[in-house]
Every structure is written in C-alpha cells, then in structure tokens.
Design a binder for these strands. Structure first.
Lengths: 149, 149
DNA sequence: CTATGGTCGTTGACATGTCATCGAATAGCT
DNA sequence: AGCTATTCGATGACATGTCAACGACCATAG
C-alpha cells in the first residue's frame, strides 16, 4: 500500500537513498570513534572552532554556524569541557554569553584525528563517486538543503 | 597515499551533502510528527509490518530487514505496544522469539499517515530532483551503501 | 540422551538529543 | 533615564539509541 503513491523509480531511489542516509554517517562515525575517540558531533565542534584564528566563538554563533540548538551545544560543550577538549570564558561583549575556546589538548586531538577522518570520508564515500557525480550531488544537496524548513 | 586533505571541490561537495544528510531526515521527520504523531522510526516499523499479508514478523527478522539491532527494536516495539500500535505474540516456531503484529489501530494510523508522508517526501525532496538526477542518486546510493561495513 | 555453545528478546546503565523553562543581561522605545 | 520585550546559556524532564549483560531456549556433536 505504501508504494502506491510513488512510481517504481521514485520508490526505489528513495529507499536506496534512505539507506545511504543511515549507513554513511554511521560508518564514518564509527571510524572516527575507533581512530580518535571522538563522535561526529565532537569533531564538528572541534573543527569549526579551529577555523577561527583565536580558536574562540560565542556559543550562540557557533550553534548558528553548525545549525545546532543552543541547548544542544550547551549540553555538548559541557561534556567536552569535562574531557578537556574545550573550555568556556565569559564573553567580554555580552555578559549573558560565553566564548567556547579550543584548548591545546583539543587542538592536538583534532590534528591527530583529521587525517584519519579524511581517509575515512575518502574510502567510505569520495573514492566511489566520479567527479561528475560529485558535482551533481553538490548542486542537488545545496538546492534541497536550501529549501525553507 | 594521496593528499591528506580534500580538494576544494571535494570539500564543498562533502559539506553540502552533510548538510543534506542532517536537514532532509529532520524535515520529513517533523512533518510526520506534526501530521500523524509518528516518528520516522515508528513509521518504518508500521510500514514494514504492513508488507506481510498477516501483518506479523518475528522480531529478529524485522530487525534484520530494517537493519536495526534487536535491542533497539525491542525497546522501540515496547513503546509502540503501550501506544497500541502493535502487539506481541509468542512465536510458535521458536519459544525464545516473539512475533510483532500490526494492530488494527496501528494499521489505521499508518493508513492515515501514508498520504501525508508521501506528500512530504515529494515536496521536500522528489519535486526538486530531475529523473536523471534521481536515477544517478539511486545508483550512487546503492553502490556506496552496499560497501562492506 | 546430554553437554555445550550459539541465538532469542529483554533489561539496565549510559550517552545524546529535544523541549519548555529559568534567571540574568541586553536592546529598543519613550 | 526607566520599562518592557527579547535573547543569552543553563537546566531538568523526557525520548531515543548503544552496549554489555542476562536467563531462556535451541541445535548439534558425541
């Protein structure tokens, strides 16, 4: 009954794509945990923080950049702070806010993790996609992700 | 080994695709919850159960078909049973196992949910993808998801 | 038969995400 | 300035997923 509404092509493509949506992040996340002891969320926080020259971001801006809720980032950063990967400073511009800072330890973990992670993305994904496919996938991803929520 | 880092093309495509991996399931999941009070996981259980003529599956087989752990399905099916969407029967073939059965209520909820869900998949995804893109996406998804874990 | 090892679903501890709410601080309007 | 509405990050309740263990049951070699 559930396939009545989609054509056979749509149904099969949607099924295959859903499988990918589940499997790919799971595999890359497992690689990351095994190689570096980081979750995908940890890695995203660390690598985004490292983009700033002073390795500091206001929590709210970092959350917006990553498209996370402030609540999620507050919870997650508290856990990462306990592990010594980041720490928190008062925001001199806004006494409500705080700055998340990448610690030297956190930066070291990121530097150690990055090459393994890149290998993982290559071997699990990029190696199996042609340049044309990759270009198309990028256009398609941007087009759909940019739709209004 | 080749370059440790990604080329600009690879980097941008991977970023865009990662955004899609997050945003698309989130949007379709929110539609489903709003329209039908179901999570994506609920919907998957209900629709997979409905594929069997007698609406019954051994838990283990259902978990394998959906690529879930038995633990996850055990937890989730317990919650769905409380809500009256499914129930559990002893497996006559194997006294260790149990059969998950789609209740009439669960089937009714699924019937109500399906058209909205299909609309959601169309408006969030399929409408914005050409037939060529969809065919390519299917090949690519299958190729990558079929890689060994 | 019976011993032994594997598989079944369940369970509890834990990690992580959402949501509503809070007090504190800011921004905007007059 | 003073009042009010908004935004900040934190927090607790809750939902959901992972993992390792468990007792119960099954299958098979001897």
């Amino acid at each position: 009954m559930e396939t009545v509404w989609l054509s056979a092509e749509e149904e099969q493509a949607w099924r295959a794509f859903r499988r990918l949506l589940i499997a790919l992040p799971a595999r890359i996340g497992r690689d990351l945990a095994r190689d570096s002891g980081l979750s995908a969320a940890d890695y995203e926080v660390l690598s985004t923080l490292s983009e700033k020259p002073d390795r500091r971001w206001p929590l709210r801006e970092l959350a917006a950049k990553m498209e996370w809720s402030r609540s999620r980032l507050s919870h997650h950063s508290a856990r990462m702070q306990v592990r010594g990967l980041i720490d928190k400073e008062p925001d001199p511009q806004d006494a409500r806010g705080c700055l998340l800072r990448l610690t030297d330890d956190g930066f070291g973990v990121l530097e150690q993790a990055a090459p393994h992670h890149v290998d993982s993305v290559r071997s699990r994904f990029l190696e199996h996609v042609s340049a044309d496919e990759l270009a198309m996938l990028r256009r398609l991803s941007t087009r759909i992700a940019d739709l209004p929520d």
